[in-house]
């Protein structure tokens, strides 16, 4: 071994024992990058060094306690998964298990009582159900749908707070109406999507097939054509129509998340809803960045990781994962 090699062996040792100066670090980094063999030599010495000087006492690692803790969560996870499955089955089968409550309300016209069924999809979960007329409904997270146990002869009316996708069973004599706090959607036989959370000032309807009329609060009726997305702003009392990429609005029903040059503000809001997370944007300058991606089956961690790779963000998970803070990397 020549003296030059010797020199670097000393440098590596100094580096590993924390004795190297900034200049020596720089020399070493340069040498490492010069040849793959150098890095391999460094790694072998570091492996030896790390073994000789572990960061903490190996005996202080309590393997049994760790295994017990992990096993506990493994068993819990299995039962949670079963419960989610059970909720889904229950919703489809109509069993009043899914936080269903039944109450009565008075119909003013004919003074008869109608039994209303209420189905809630809690935050972080989605559900599907079939109404008495065989209309199929996908209910997104944090949404509530109320409908009568039997529809009237002349009309089918349901009430929605939140977001849902309807595949309405055709029946010309019995129009289907979705009532929300501000908007109403009238359909015959068709598929459409409604987004109307009471706490949001923006509401939307997307028509997938057939024909619907949207009734705005000031009694204006807007007929929609297939593939059109209507967005209504309560604060401005006006609406816009958009015909691009309409699938992204209701892709959640197929367990997909689609972002098509959407603002990060929208992306994080959607993630919060989809995963029942609390992502807080700390630098508002981020909100206007546009993002484009498709996800299916990814965990929130994986999505955040992907976001971090392509956007100038870094995130920090706080308080046992309850809050995720997002920062602009240049700040």
């Amino acid at each position: 071994m020549n003296t030059e090699d010797n020199h670097y062996e000393i440098l590596i040792t100094k580096y590993l024992s924390g004795e190297a100066s900034a200049a020596e670090n720089e020399t070493l980094a340069h040498w490492l990058k010069a040849h793959p063999d150098h890095l391999q030599r460094f790694n072998q010495l570091k492996n030896l060094w790390d073994t000789g000087t572990p960061a903490f006492q190996p005996d202080a690692i309590d393997e049994d306690a760790a295994l017990a803790q992990v096993m506990k969560q493994v068993s819990e996870k299995a039962s949670v998964r079963f419960w989610l499955y059970a909720q889904r089955v229950a919703a489809i089968l109509f069993l009043p298990l899914l936080a269903t409550c039944i109450f009565f309300y008075t119909k003013q016209n004919d003074q008869t009582y109608t039994t209303l069924q209420k189905v809630i999809a809690p935050y972080g979960s989605r559900t599907e159900l079939t109404l008495p007329d065989s209309t199929h409904v996908y209910l997104n997270a944090g949404s509530t749908l109320s409908y009568p146990v039997t529809f009237k002869q002349s009309a089918r009316e349901v009430t929605l707070n939140g977001e849902a996708y309807f595949e309405v069973k055709a029946s010309a004599q019995q129009p289907f109406t979705v009532k929300t706090k501000q908007l109403q959607v009238k359909a015959l036989g068709t598929a459409f999507h409604v987004n109307a959370y009471e706490h949001d000032s923006i509401m939307a309807v997307t028509l997938v097939s057939g024909k619907v009329h949207v009734l705005l609060p000031h009694a204006e009726q807007v007929p929609l054509t297939v593939g059109t997305h209507l967005q209504y702003s309560a604060s401005k009392n006006s609406y816009t129509l958009d015909r691009e990429n309409s699938y992204k609005w209701y892709a959640w029903k197929d367990n997909k998340l689609l972002f098509r040059d959407d603002s990060l503000a929208y992306v994080f809001k959607t993630l919060n809803q989809f995963y029942h997370a609390r992502i807080v944007v700390k630098d508002s300058s981020l909100n206007s960045y546009r993002y484009r991606a498709s996800f299916e089956g990814e965990t929130l961690d994986e999505i955040l990781h992907a976001l971090q790779l392509s956007m100038p963000i870094r995130y920090q998970i706080k308080q046992n994962r309850k809050v995720i803070e997002v920062y602009h990397t240049t700040h």
């Binding site: 890095l39 460094f42 000789g52």
Partner: peptide, 26 residues
Amino acid sequence: DVWAFSQSNDQDTEKYVFYSILNKKL
């Protein structure tokens, strides 16, 4: 720099020898 560079290399995980094996030899 040294740290960043040595961590950026993916191929060496196979060559890493675990504590439980290496320590005895050491």
